[in-house]
Nucleic acid binder design. Structure first.
Lengths: 163, 163
DNA sequence: GTTCATTTATTGCAGAAGCATGTATTTGCA
DNA sequence: TGCAAATACATGCTTCTGCAATAAATGAAC
């Protein structure tokens, strides 16, 4: 099921079949461009209508969920794939806006938990439909290229995972 | 199963059932996290071994290809999903390092073409294996979660597209 | 009980990106 | 021709990010 492209540029890779590696790189670039476009659309929608960046919304999403209302900075950094410092400042911004609070851990006094405030939950619940609508729009737009539809469908198969 | 929207706010998406929208959002978050992790890995590898960011490498990739050695700023911005100003500075950085040159268009004197220098092609050819190896590593790492393998396979199916 | 390596979070600094704006050039229309 | 609108880049300013250095707390070795 793999249409290996025989006539390839000198994609000199090391591991696996060279052509497969080249194909993966090309597919990756396509995926990365698609991802950037979708995220850009979501970013603009959230920014314009709620004054939130994608990362800010993502923090609220993790904190506003029924089971995730108590998350350490480090875990947050891991979930968002951000550096420690970026996470510190991201949380500080949201705290300054009153959307979350920092709670000192009592077992490990180095640890700091982020918790959503009621206001933070409210903002999240308002912004979530915007986020989902922007995502659906972007995916629908992407599906106009029929080669992308399998990717869009694969997305729903990922629903159960949380990397 | 899924910690989606607890008590259904009418997730105001237009298309499809609400639960499908929720699944898409969850899948999107998984994909976004995976994307961030892979890009982070590639970024570090390129930065450490060649002093290039992903975007800088990407510019060289588009310029060093056999057919793409003559690209306008605007096209470049579109391919990279970057703003005009970011593209201006990205190209300026690479020009300062001698990896590309700006060429004024003669038909449309507003236009500026970016072209790779021999040095730029050399750097690209050296960096490409690093890029591909880092990608393969990241994908192999991702495949350790068996639920992600279909996504990785889908990647190779995208090889023919160029968004 | 003291000492040292590790983990957690914050801060100074520099790099990179976007928005708004400015300048030059082209295009369209009267 | 003459002039308004659009297009293509560049620049000023602000925001967000990562890296390196720092401080506080924990845990293990002795």
């Amino acid at each position: 099921m793999s249409p290996a492209q025989p006539s390839g540029p000198p994609s000199g890779a090391a591991s696996g079949t060279p052509s497969a590696t080249g194909d993966r790189a090309q597919g990756w670039r396509t995926l990365a461009a698609l991802h950037a476009r979708i995220e850009d659309g979501i970013e603009r929608a959230l920014q314009r209508r709620h004054g939130l960046s994608v990362n800010e919304f993502c923090v609220l999403h993790h904190l506003a969920g029924p089971d995730g209302r108590h998350i350490r900075m480090q875990q947050l950094a891991d979930k968002l794939v951000l550096s420690q410092s970026a996470t510190t400042r991201l949380v500080a911004r949201l705290e300054k806006r009153g959307l979350l609070t920092r709670v000192l851990s009592e077992e490990d006094r180095r640890g700091i938990y982020a918790e959503a405030t009621p206001e933070g939950r409210k903002v999240h619940d308002e912004a979530a439909p915007t986020h989902n609508a922007a995502l659906d729009d972007a995916l629908a737009e992407a599906s106009r290229l029929p080669e992308l539809t399998p990717l869009v469908e694969a997305l729903e198969g990922l629903a159960n995972l949380k990397v």
